[in-house]
Write a protein that binds this DNA or RNA. Structure first.
Lengths: 204, 204
DNA sequence: CACAAAAACAGAATTGACTCAATTTTAGAA
DNA sequence: TTCTAAAATTGAGTCAATTCTGTTTTTGTG
């Protein structure tokens, strides 16, 4: 077991993802034809569909890499948050947003988001939902941490609050990727302004 | 002017929309082939593309009808809101949500949302963004009304708050249409729970 | 070392959205 | 009424994602 076949499989997966990532960056999602990805990965079209259900799933694999990195980076903030509710939220959200365009262009994000709502039951659709949930959980964890530190009122419904903060941030991010002209600094400022209302309500 | 040509044009528009609405309902968005819509509307494929840029725009026209109805219904609540902040929000949001599946199935919503993020600059993409903005404005108007009635604190940032409430509701709605099993009552309850945090913070 | 079953691959064929050049219809002037 | 330009319609053709079927490769067994 784990012989030639498994090695070749892993290798082909990698080659397909690398080829797709390069072509998506260069030509955009729509512009990257499956035939071109297949050629670049030195694999046939049929083989790509043996590995991924559809073109969207290939993008999905790339998105997952990105979001998992972000989740890792976020853990540091949850572990040692700034000693101020507003700053703590801003720092965590800042990590999410600043990382977001590292590997993925806005166009790639748009496609990924579209696919995840269009086909919520495809492998990628489910993975994307899981990633959203993981981000929500991380924000909830931060709130719990702040409550433990006595910075947030104990009687606050942390689960609902975490969801509220995530949902708002996510929607703002969606609008952000929809407008090519939108700038990261503006996005962060707008979210800060919105969260200020919440911070006033929950800070001790 | 407004002679035969204009009448035929309006008639064809109507026939295409009616045919599409019926087929979308019956066969789903993907399942409704353009050729079938053309046949049902007694029009050629080319003519459809003369009226709509792409398949998504046809769905977009149907979505617009739906959302505009919702906006109208919402006006009544803004004009005479319940004399309690929580109830006022719940009533307005209730109107949005209860109407939402009147003409559109969850699958149609998923497609519509996907297209609007995928092609934000297409006619439908822009229209959808405008509809979102109109809904946000209506929530802001409600908040302003509640402030005028002395039910919401004057020092609250109504613009940011309205956006926050809309964004959260919209994201919850997106998750709702992604899960076929999700029920309207659960959605409303979850949003109420989230808004409770805000209500506590802003009510006089 | 065969060999049969299972797994993976290849690429031709299918499918369906969208385009475009040719044709038909309408408006309005003479 | 007749004619011409503009507007609209048509449907066959194009393009690219996805499917399908026959072939090749790998594995494990005798």
């Amino acid at each position: 077991m784990s012989g030639l076949r498994a090695r070749q499989k892993a290798d082909r997966h990698r080659r397909i993802i690398e080829a797709a990532a390069e072509l998506f960056r260069e030509a955009g999602y729509e512009g990257a034809k499956i035939e071109a990805i297949a050629a670049q990965a030195e694999v046939s079209v049929g083989t790509i569909y043996n590995y991924y259900e559809n073109k969207g799933d290939i993008l999905g694999a790339i998105v997952s890499l990105e979001v998992n990195e972000v989740l890792n980076a976020g853990q540091g903030v949850v572990a040692r948050p700034p000693a101020n509710v507003g700053d703590a939220l801003d720092t965590l959200i800042g990590i999410y947003i600043e990382h977001s365009l590292h590997y993925l262009s806005k166009e790639m994000w748009r496609q990924a988001m579209a696919i995840s709502t269009q086909l919520p039951d495809s492998p990628f659709g489910q993975a994307y939902t899981a990633l959203d949930r993981a981000l929500t959980e991380q924000i909830r964890a931060l709130i719990a941490r702040l409550q433990a530190l006595g910075l947030v009122r104990q009687d606050i419904d942390g689960a609902a609050l975490g969801e509220l903060i995530f949902n708002n941030m996510n929607m703002m991010f969606i609008e952000f990727v929809k407008r090519d002209a939108a700038k990261i600094a503006e996005l962060r400022a707008a979210i800060r302004r919105q969260n200020r209302i919440l911070v006033a309500a929950i800070a001790v």
